[in-house]
Design a binder for these strands. Structure first.
Lengths: 352, 352
DNA sequence: TCCGACAAAGATAGCGCTAACACAAAAGAT
DNA sequence: ATCTTTTGTGTTAGCGCTATCTTTGTCGGA
């Protein structure tokens, strides 16, 4: 028989598993089994328990589950580049999944302190796994150090593949190829391109996709139409100035991310070029920046928050896998992108 | 004597309070007292325990603390307007403080579902308190409903004061006054102003500050130089078009937030006005948008992440206060702002 | 008929920590 | 000198849940 003892310590009226089990007329263990979706519970019993849960509005106490259930995964989200549009989407995804997976989340800015020190701090904080958004995901140095201290890691939005490191990315090359083809389809033949920061793999991929699309359509990019950038708005401005100062203007510019594309648009306006009538511009990422410019940017949408979710999921799996001596293989996920059409690209009338 | 029993359930080697107490030669309770910074521990004992903690690299298990310590505060951060620059700063602050205060954080997007439904969901999720950033912080409807279901709330960046609701804001009027005075100090006499969304209190405050600064300096704003907006980039564009199409141009435009200011800058460029040489522009908030425009915006810095931290802190205090039958009074905090000078404002040569 | 083999549920014993009380020693109060 | 207080610490008993073991059927095969 189950007895409900009244404790002097409980004060909230949140129902506990004991109350549910009493109502359902089963043991707490059975309720636990139902909650955790284990087999070995008769269908009828399961329903009875579920009804009891529903009537009481019971929700398991996460702290207790964790304490009893054994292992806690502590996951740190390291970030560096406060490109906040990206960060906040990331955060929302990570937070959500962490709550679902019962992982503890620590969010930390990776200042300019050296890699060894970071790794040490993480170890001291007893972090089990680390999520690295760009540009951190491309820091070989950091990754090496993390591997040294046996920390699990998930790297986001990089195409580099590491042996001991989950990676979640989209096919940057294919996306850039698609965007370039789209421009070509609109009749553009003189297309400028602004590269990203050279220490991120995405930069190369996007550049490759651009070039391949061009040559697949029998076009070539003029040297003067290609410029370097570093994914910042400012670098977009500088790059656009370089390109637009030339004698021979492109009809479209494809910037490797939205911030730079916004820089291009701003610069185009300063140069008295109407966007998109005289110059089409497109970006990449679909951050909030894409709609904070006029006209709004045609761009490639990255599923950032899904990526974040997946990162947490993979980490939790591999952390608990290692603990149980049942290693979870390293995953390299490639998610789908989407081309978002807005108003920064116009069709060019083909010359006969 | 303390005995360390080896359990078959423990698998991680993370040290527990028992190990610390053994090493320090005290009881677990004393260690707990040291951890929680309670009085009634001799200085010498405290040091000994702290040393033990340090040598073992002990960190308390949050789940266990919570379970034993009684009450968990579940706090929800509701958001609506994905002005991500703002959101991510908010998130970082909230997360940090939630971890420190031992509160559980749920982040939820407040779609367009009706207020009653939201409130119900929150109750079902057994949320204790809610953080409301703008524009939610100005939704009387929502606040009323929350009060009805006895949820604690902290509203951010609104000057409205509610009886049952903590509020954290900065002095919008003073800040707008300061910015306007700054412009006047630079020699501007014809200053345009773009208002924000009329359903946010900040809008009125900022507008008032602007007007007061003007009249304190013996100036008046032309009707044609004032325009409405809704805090979005696009509305900044529209408002700027309205103002700049007029016959009599202002020498400066003060937009009620950075997004709109960015819209003004973009529009100015389209109108062939050089910023800041021909038109000075300034914003408000100092979101990342402020530096994602060219030139970078002179603006008012809101301490968003401190505000977020404070919100969590107040909520936790008032939630546990109510539980202990020791009500924590409603707070209305007013934080300091800062005028950040960048390159979007130039000094005007005074006409003799 | 008896003996596994397995399925379904219960009983027990913690997870790591802290509230609440207990208690000795030291410090004041009368 | 005796009776409070105060101070510093230890003891006990959980917090709400689940891992693990045990028990109780149930069914099929020998």
């Amino acid at each position: 028989m189950v007895t409900l003892k009244k404790s002097r310590r409980r004060s909230t009226s949140s129902p506990t598993i004991a109350e549910v089990s009493a109502l359902a007329g089963v043991s707490a263990m059975t309720v636990s089994r139902v909650i955790n979706d284990e087999a070995r519970v008769r269908e009828e019993t399961r329903t009875r328990v579920q009804d009891a849960i529903a009537t009481l509005g019971y929700r398991p106490n996460a702290a207790a589950q964790q304490l009893a259930g054994g292992q806690l995964c502590r996951i740190a989200l390291l970030y560096n580049n406060p490109s906040s549009a990206y960060l906040s989407e990331l955060l929302v995804g990570v937070l959500d999944q962490a709550a679902q997976s019962g992982a503890e989340l620590i969010v930390e800015q990776f200042g300019d302190s050296d890699v060894a020190k970071i790794a040490q701090t993480l170890v001291e904080q007893r972090i089990d796994g680390v999520i690295l958004p760009p540009p951190l995901s491309d820091s070989e140095d950091l990754l090496r150090k993390l591997a040294q201290v046996e920390l699990h890691a998930a790297i986001i939005a990089t195409n580099r593949v590491h042996e001991n490191c989950h990676s979640i990315a989209l096919d940057d090359e294919a996306a850039a190829y698609a965007m370039t083809s789209y421009l070509i389809g609109k009749g553009h033949q003189q297309i400028g391109f602004i590269k990203g920061n050279s220490n991120q793999t995405a930069t190369n991929q996007r550049s490759k996709g651009f070039q391949r699309a061009l040559s697949d359509h029998g076009l070539v990019a003029l040297e003067a139409h290609i410029a370097d950038g570093d994914f910042s708005f400012k670098s977009g401005v500088v790059a656009a100035e370089k390109i637009l100062k030339g004698d021979h203007l492109p009809t479209a510019i494809f910037a490797s991310n939205d911030d730079m594309a916004a820089g291009v648009v701003a610069t185009a306006h300063r140069f008295n070029l109407k966007v998109p009538e005289q110059l089409s511009v497109c970006g990449f990422d679909d951050t909030s920046m894409a709609v904070s410019t006029w006209p709004e940017l045609t761009t490639i949408k990255q599923p950032v928050s899904s990526m974040a979710r997946l990162a947490v999921d993979l980490l939790v799996k591999s952390i608990s896998g290692r603990r149980d001596g049942d290693p979870f293989p390293t995953q390299n996920a490639m998610l789908d992108f989407e081309l978002v059409e807005r108003n920064s690209v116009s069709a060019l009338l083909k010359m006969p």
